[in-house]
């Protein structure tokens, strides 16, 4: 089913392309603690890839390695076929990797629109003089990027709160605005750190729908961490399972569900 060059076809018939992100033998240590031990996996063009595991398994650390917060002691990260040198998070962002956070990291003092517009900052190149006079490139750029942001705002159905300060919004909407900000940058790879944490069933359904729609309409490659097993199994094409910093399973939801090691990690195992 899995072909290194050709990609594969998912259960619901979507064609998945070649490798976008390839993590090879990643090891990450904090002092004496080894957060990630020799993990390899890949993320392919157009797929929804989930990383799951019990608390403290190293999932968020993994995401932080991908987005450049942590530099692994061992192993290589390949993005779109090229080996990535250790770089700062903002350089990673400029390569086309966007992410959301487990506990929302929006800019509370700015309006929803301004928050979404920050997603376009990597594309805005007007010089300081043009900006100071609000003439030429700065003005043109502002309008062009506004159009892209408005599309995302329409898509995520947050038009009505466009000009509201983010601090005034309820939790569920903030999560959606954060997704909008990440989407506005038109990422090649979108990382979602627990997009459904702390939501009720209805909000989870909304969010799942948005994630599927994003993948479907923009063809965005998505890697997500999630605790809600039902959601993970429904949404994702392939799942990596981590436990104590090791990879204990990798495959389609069906394969992972029947993996003995995974079952042991989640349900516990008797030591006799």
């Amino acid at each position: 089913m899995l072909d290194q060059e050709q990609g594969y076809v998912t259960a619901d018939g979507r064609q998945i392309g070649g490798t976008v992100m390839d993590m090879r033998n990643i090891t990450l240590r904090f002092g004496g603690v080894t957060a990630i031990k020799d993990i390899s996996f890949d993320i392919r063009e157009g797929e929804i890839r989930a990383i799951i595991g019990p608390n403290g398994a190293g999932k968020s650390s993994m995401l932080n390695v991908i987005s450049g917060f942590y530099v692994p002691q061992e192993g290589q990260v390949y993005f779109r076929g090229e080996k990535r040198a250790p770089m700062r998070p903002y350089e990673v962002a400029r390569q086309g990797i966007a992410r959301t956070f487990q506990n929302i990291a929006l800019f509370e003092g700015m309006s929803v629109l301004d928050n979404v517009m920050t997603g376009r900052l990597t594309q805005m190149k007007a010089g300081i003089l043009s900006q100071a006079l609000w003439r030429g490139k700065a003005e043109k750029e502002e309008v062009e990027n506004r159009e892209i942001c408005e599309k995302v705002i329409d898509f995520l159905e947050i038009q009505h709160i466009r000009k509201t300060p983010v601090a005034r919004l309820p939790y569920g909407l903030k999560k959606r605005v954060e997704l909008a900000r990440a989407l506005a940058s038109e990422p090649k790879l979108l990382l979602l750190d627990e997009p459904m944490a702390g939501m009720n069933v209805e909000e989870k359904e909304d969010m799942s729908r948005f994630i599927l729609d994003v993948n479907d309409e923009f063809g965005t490659t998505i890697a997500l961490i999630e605790h809600d097993m039902g959601v993970v199994m429904d949404l994702s094409d392939r799942v990596v399972v981590m436990d104590y910093g090791r990879k204990i399973g990798d495959g389609t939801p069906e394969e992972v569900r029947n993996n003995q090691e995974v079952i042991d990690a989640y349900l516990g195992v008797s030591h006799d």
């Binding site: 900052l121 990597t122 007007a126 502002e142």
Partner: peptide, 27 residues
């Protein structure tokens, strides 16, 4: 003009949450 454009958004992003600012590409 500076504060309503992209430079101003960079500043406000740094003010409100510098980690998130860096992750969306603000140096």
């Amino acid at each position: 003009n500076l504060t309503r454009g992209s430079l101003g958004r960079k500043w406000m992003a740094i003010r409100d949450m510098d980690i998130a600012a860096e992750i969306i590409g603000v140096n």
